[in-house]
Simulated scan of single mutants.
Amino acid sequence: MNLSFKEIATASMVLFAVIDILGSVPIIISLRNKVGHIQSEKASLVAAGIMVAFLFVGERILHLIGIDVNSFAVAGAFVIFFLAVEMILGITLFRDDEPETASIVPIAFPLIAGAGTMTSILALRAEYAVQNIVVAILVNVLFVYIVLKSSRKIEKVLGKNGLSVIRKVFGVILLAIAVKLFATNASELC
């Protein structure tokens, strides 16, 4: 097992930016206020399970429907690009309706392990070793758990402006990663 710190760090940053758990703090707080309690442990474990399972069977599902990983990675680069544009410009191109109950379904999926996360995982798989992506997923799930547990404190400490700055910085990083994913995988399509 060859663990690469560089690959783990890059994959962790991609997933951190796509999951955008800090940017989701207002949604989490709103859900917590509506229903009283969020099951942080369950939400984190289910999200981890979904992401790791998709890492291993996602490619098979693609092959079953006749799509190669490079094509999916290019498509993923577009999704990541638009997520980055949303983060940087503070606009909403696409969002699901805010869920009405705070259970595993709205938190673990689609808030944490949503379409952007799944696309990113397969795009990363086209470029990085699986074990490094698994470690990156676990690092992010640990961070998600911490944020879910302490969302009220985070909101008080960072404030709206702090959350906005973090969101924009990771938007720019995500934009650069989208360009790199596109450039790397588009050449493989010909």
Rank of each mutant, 00 (worst) to 15 (best):
I27K: 09
F78W: 10
R32P: 00
A43D: 13
F16K: 02
E86H: 01
V157L: 13
L3M: 15
T117Q: 02
A47H: 00
I50N: 02
R167M: 09
I50F: 14
T184R: 05
L124P: 12
D20R: 08
P106Y: 07
K149D: 08
E188H: 10
P110F: 08
V57C: 12
I65V: 15
E188K: 12
L163G: 13
K156C: 06
M1R: 12
I133A: 12
S40W: 07
V134S: 09
V135D: 13
G116R: 03
L189P: 04
P99R: 10
R167C: 05
A84V: 04
F16N: 06
V169R: 03
P26C: 04
A129V: 11
L158I: 04
S44H: 01
F182N: 03
N70W: 10
S24M: 13
V135G: 09
A84Y: 04
A108Y: 03
E127R: 12
K6Y: 14
F170A: 03
L142Y: 01
Q131H: 11
F5A: 14
A102F: 05
V18M: 14
K34R: 14
D68F: 01
L83V: 13
V144G: 09
L55M: 08
L163T: 00
A129F: 14
I28Q: 08
I173K: 00
N33W: 00
K180P: 00
V57R: 00
R32Y: 09
I166D: 00
L89F: 15
K180M: 01
G66C: 05
L148V: 12
E127V: 13
A53D: 03
V105N: 04
I50A: 09
L124D: 11
A73E: 11
K34T: 12
V85N: 02
